[in-house]
Design a binder for these strands. Structure first.
Length: 631
DNA sequence: ATAGGGTTAG
């Protein structure tokens, strides 16, 4: 254009700025500005604002600041841009000062300040500003509702969410797709998935399959977001089965199931441990032609390793091959989870060689790996590396892992010192881990002391009593064990009910102890009785005394034989082909008797059985378990 | 000009 000698008008220049902003092309943006000055073009407020936008998109904060100072004329847009910029670049006070001194605040000014404060982690201050906005009399826009609903969910203030919901309806935003999706998300995050699903029911059907292939209107996108939020909502609230049901409905009804929803669902599969469904989704994902990116890849790696298929995890990891921390961390944690401690460590070293900077989660994976493999020196080395070389402050989880590491290696005095030196004596998880170590290394005296500490710190945690009772039982102090149990009853501490899950075809079957509600109930119990008889012949002896689980109240041989994981295992044996591994998920720690039972089953029936309990992963084969009887 | 979903750990 310049070569032809035509003179660009302001409209053209503004468009040029838009392009620079889109491409983050700072050089070109600066060039345009210089050209305007050289040719004496009148830089009006709109062009000035466009230039501000380009500089900020390119992270050239100083340029923007200087331009703002030099502008002859500024409007509310210029101010809003700068207020937002100061928040994003971390100068919250400066931003608030500017905001307060702004005489002509519009709705965007308010939206910017509320959202910015929230993004900076000042949620309470954001809420204050929202209240000021109401007092000031500024009408909410759709954007205000989105921001405010997110604020309500991040503060987990259902009451605020409800009020906003009322305002949304009154102001006529109830049919706006994105506002509705924010409402769905707010209710999910505040734990009211019932409310969320009612709103979802009103989501119009026009984005469904009928005659609408390939169309992605704003409403379509909003509908997908709502459904995606609903699926994630189920997942966040632990309602995995409902989440998967909603996802299936989505696959059946929708034109597109997008990559973000898929990520959430894979993560749901990982958490509930249903490998088959995860595999289906993986296949479905490839069928619709999406590339597996680092997000989906990390969740797939996590899913495969948590479902006991480390091969699957490696396949994904090699296939993606990106220097992404989370991707590597997922693989390291996966190895660690499966008891492949040394493998996890060598992967970590390779990661460092490739120049990828580990984060706090990576170190947690590595420390757990060391603990699992009993590598005390390495564990200490990495703990120091984390603090000194990477300036990461050890969190509760890292410290618990170290306590586990020392304890498992039998260094009980060091464990004790570590706890006090690092100020961890208020943490339940730390004392629990320590107590397990005392039990493992049969140090009764230390165990008693630790028990006292544990009960002081966590008098209402059922797990404390269970551990304690188990320790007494393994020392044959039956009276003591009984005393612990009655203390627990006296104090009104209730144990969480134990549950086990197994997936068959596309159905998830849930079992609780003594469950009689299953339709194959008779078959399961009679097979279980026969099986126990046969197991006794090869050396299994049910030991009720060793098994006050994290779960069941009652003791006695009959009741322990009906623990949920035994029911689930038997259900698996009855209903699946002989060659296939049986995969069980359990919501608590597996008890000693069930562990023993499953070891013998794997031997008697020559069957691979994989149990994932709350703590770790048990891979039973030929009569032994991958955890080497430590969990 | 302002927002609007996702990954690892626990």
């Amino acid at each position: 254009m310049q070569a032809k000698g035509a003179c660009p008008n302001q409209y053209t220049l503004s468009s040029v700025y838009k392009c620079c902003s889109f491409d983050s092309n700072l050089q070109f943006g600066k060039g345009v500005h210089a050209w305007m000055l050289r040719h004496g073009v009148d830089v009006d407020v709109v062009l000035g604002n466009s230039a501000l936008d380009v500089y900020l998109k390119c992270n050239a904060f100083q340029y923007a600041e200087r331009l703002f100072e030099l502008m002859d004329e500024r409007d509310v847009v210029s101010w809003n841009i700068m207020i937002g910029a100061y928040l994003r670049f971390g100068d919250v006070e400066k931003s608030l000062d500017m905001f307060r001194s702004l005489p002509c605040k519009d709705v965007v000014s308010w939206n910017t300040i509320v959202d910015g404060l929230m993004q900076c982690g000042y949620e309470r201050r954001a809420l204050e500003q929202l209240h000021c906005m109401v007092e000031y009399g500024t009408e909410f826009s759709d954007v205000t509702f989105s921001i405010a609903l997110i604020l309500a969910s991040s503060l987990s203030v259902l009451e605020l969410g409800r009020q906003l919901h009322g305002m949304v309806l009154k102001r006529g935003f109830g049919s706006d797709g994105f506002t509705r999706s924010s409402l769905v998300e707010m209710y999910c995050k505040c734990g009211r998935i019932d409310k969320a699903s009612i709103i979802l029911r009103d989501v119009p059907l026009d984005f469904r399959r009928k005659g609408n292939v390939g169309v992605t209107s704003k409403e379509t996108k909003a509908g997908i977001v709502s459904w995606g939020s609903m699926v994630s909502g189920y997942v966040w609230n632990g309602k995995y089965e409902d989440g998967l049901k909603a996802f299936r409905l989505m696959v059946r009804e929708l034109v597109v199931v997008d990559i973000r929803t898929v990520t959430t669902v894979i993560s749901a599969c990982a958490n509930v441990g249903i490998l088959d469904f995860g595999r289906h989704i993986h296949a479905y994902f490839q069928k619709i032609g999406h590339r597996v990116d680092a997000y989906v890849g990390s969740s797939l790696i996590d899913m495969y390793s948590k479902c006991g298929s480390l091969d699957g995890a490696w396949m994904i990891f090699r296939q993606i091959n990106e220097p992404n921390v989370i991707l590597w961390t997922s693989m390291i944690s996966g190895c660690s989870l499966q008891g492949q401690g040394r493998q996890a460590i060598s992967l970590f070293e390779e990661m460092l060689n490739q120049g990828i900077r580990p984060n706090e989660v990576t170190f947690l994976g590595v420390l757990n790996a060391c603990s699992h493999a009993g590598l005390l020196d390495e564990g200490c080395k990495y703990f120091r590396m984390m603090k000194d070389a990477y300036c990461i402050n050890p969190g509760v989880e890292h410290c618990t892992s170290m306590v586990d590491l020392y304890g498992r290696a039998g260094c009980l005095t060091e464990t004790k010192n570590f706890i006090f030196e690092n100020g961890l004596s208020h943490l339940t998880s730390v004392w629990k881990s320590f107590l397990s170590s005392c039990r493992l290394h049969k140090n009764v005296e230390m165990g008693k002391w630790v028990s006292d500490m544990l009960l002081q710190v966590a008098p209402s945690d059922p797990g404390s009593y269970v551990l304690l009772s188990n320790m007494c039982a393994s020392n044959h102090s039956w009276d003591e064990a009984a005393r612990v149990r009655s203390l627990m009853h006296q104090r009104g501490v209730k144990k969480q009910p134990g549950q086990s899950w197994i997936q068959l075809k596309d159905q998830i079957h849930t079992f609780v102890m003594g469950d009689r509600s299953h339709h194959q109930d008779k078959e399961i119990y009679s097979y279980l009785d026969t099986l126990i008889g046969r197991l006794k012949e090869i050396g299994y002896s049910p030991d009720a005394k060793l098994v006050m689980q994290d779960v069941e109240e009652e003791q006695g041989e009959v009741l322990i034989s009906h623990h949920s994981e035994k029911l689930a295992v038997v259900f698996g044996i009855i209903n699946t082909a002989h060659r296939l591994p049986i995969r069980i998920i359990k919501n608590l720690r597996i008890c000693t008797d069930c562990h023993n039972f499953i070891k013998h089953v794997s031997q008697l029936l020559d069957r691979e059985i994989i149990v994932r309990d709350i703590h770790r992963y048990h891979h039973f084969n030929h009569g032994s378990c991958s955890c080497e009887d430590y969990w």
